[in-house]
Design a protein around this nucleic acid. Sequence first.
DNA 1: CCCAGTTTTGCAAGCGAGTGCAACAGCAGG
DNA 2: CCTGCTGTTGCACTCGCTTGCAAAACTGGG
Lengths: 333, 333
Amino acid sequence: MSRKIFVSAKEVADRAGVSRSAVSRTFTPGASVSEETRRRVIEAAEELGYHVNHLARGLMRNESGIVCLIVSELDTPYRASLIRALTGQLQGASKIAMLINTDRSDDSVDQALRQAISYRADASIILSGMPDKSITDLCLKSGQRLVLINRDEDRDGALMINLHDREAARRGFIAMLRAGCRNFAFANSEAMTPSLIAREEAFRAAGRDHGIDVTVERFGSTTYQSGVVLAQRLLTRENRPDAIFCVNDLLACGLMDAARHQFNLAIPSELCVVGFDDIEQASWSSYNLTTFAQPVEQIAAEAVTWLDQVTPAETNSRRLDAELVWRGSVRGG
Amino acid sequence: MSRKIFVSAKEVADRAGVSRSAVSRTFTPGASVSEETRRRVIEAAEELGYHVNHLARGLMRNESGIVCLIVSELDTPYRASLIRALTGQLQGASKIAMLINTDRSDDSVDQALRQAISYRADASIILSGMPDKSITDLCLKSGQRLVLINRDEDRDGALMINLHDREAARRGFIAMLRAGCRNFAFANSEAMTPSLIAREEAFRAAGRDHGIDVTVERFGSTTYQSGVVLAQRLLTRENRPDAIFCVNDLLACGLMDAARHQFNLAIPSELCVVGFDDIEQASWSSYNLTTFAQPVEQIAAEAVTWLDQVTPAETNSRRLDAELVWRGSVRGG
DNA sequence: CCCAGTTTTGCAAGCGAGTGCAACAGCAGG
DNA sequence: CCTGCTGTTGCACTCGCTTGCAAAACTGGG
């Protein structure tokens, strides 16, 4: 099977005619090595194709440089772009991302965290699902840091990054109100994630504030197909909505497609739509969707800089703005 | 900073009143431990929240269980779905994926492979870019396995997974020919990946075989925006194409949107379009794109089973079928 | 040339696990 | 009770690296 073929520090030391420690120090920033030995070590290392064994290093330093990203349905546009931002910025901070896919079963977020512990990840970033309290406690007790993105619930000792969902929903309402809409609806999935709930609630509240009743419909998971179904449910009502806030862009795309192709509605003249996430497709001219942008790079930056802090992980919470991106799915603007 | 707080086998051993080896053996399948001690160890481990340190285990076993996925622009729909499939199946084979993002510089595929070596990854799977020969040699010499997906070029000792690009292109041509198209065009990017070139060449060849001249236009990278530009270039020609094979779906979406919204063309009556990849958006009713499907799950399966083989990595090549998915962007069908 | 002060270096003790080997216990048969 | 066998256990070594500590090698001033 796999024989030990990786070249070790010992071999480099022998070749360079120095001690093992010298090699180690050469690759440890800030260690005391003379220019001369460093040169010889580097040279020998180059020739042999030596690379420090990060596994062993992690063992000694008690710091692996590994950060686990725990995520399901990672091919969803928003998730994928967040992963891209995170991996990019983690590498910038010389850490490396381990990707754990929790598509399978339901307890698999817990499973994933166990994996993270087994690989002695310095931290885990949870993008979907919500782990058991007992597991997160174990993580924190083990000295592993935890970042929850758009999960909202409280977890002591973790960093929680969320958006101003409520304000976004309210702004969306007002935008469509100004566009002259009268019948408001909110298209949601049944996922009932805290942030999705917040958007729905705030949108209803905005309606109440203006003495307007908001129709809410929920269906399935937060996908394009659900958007199609929601369109069928909402657009066949007797007083058809002329303003729909979709809980995210994927849903909005499905809803818009159904509205146009099945109900022959013109957007935005007969129906205004607002989405959330600002996925790439929202900017495609078939959709041209007015939406709230997830500040993915900023989210990633917050996470990574927090992880880089040396102070012991304290409970921490960040709430970022979701910027409104005006496009053509709402009149005016 | 981070104190050693992870619980170790020693502590479990003490608590269970056995030797450290007993603990080790309990978590090593096939080792000789009595039912009684195993029970006590498991119990103690549970109470203490012990998890085998995979770093240390990897050190001893000389097998880390880590597989690196090397990829750029991972938020592209096709890439994202491939990553999803790969992570899922790797986990099924009890391996774990490390994600290396090569968006930054150009030599960063090499950088990525160095990382992979540093973490003693058992294998690397390259989804984008092409590493230097010297680096891949180093990988192979170090006993690391290598999988190249849609990279085509020859690399001794690696597994190369490709599709029947040429046949797909030819089939696409014939499909549009049967639909009654006369003016054929091929919309490509300037990425010039082997598989993209193969599609283009085969499409031209199909044209030649039928005595039909094929217009080829190339622009930028393989994105939606390039599709828009390509539409502008192709659809303003004096004898406007009525059949366009797009080198991938993303490009096709951009091209279709531009054709419809800027040139007011009806698809498929005035223009037939064929894509490649079968990304999710291809099935959205705004596009309803006839395309060739990347068999992502099958690709992932091939890769993972090959990695699981115990025989020393031999050069190996798989060529899979890209199934034609008939939708509405080509007449007939 | 000597000595105190500053680098630089090597030794050796870890880190947390796996595993060959020998000692050991338990058991059945003689 | 002794012998031989099987199955379990613990010791000690190993993996590749980091790092405290003390010895060795410089440095410059007197």
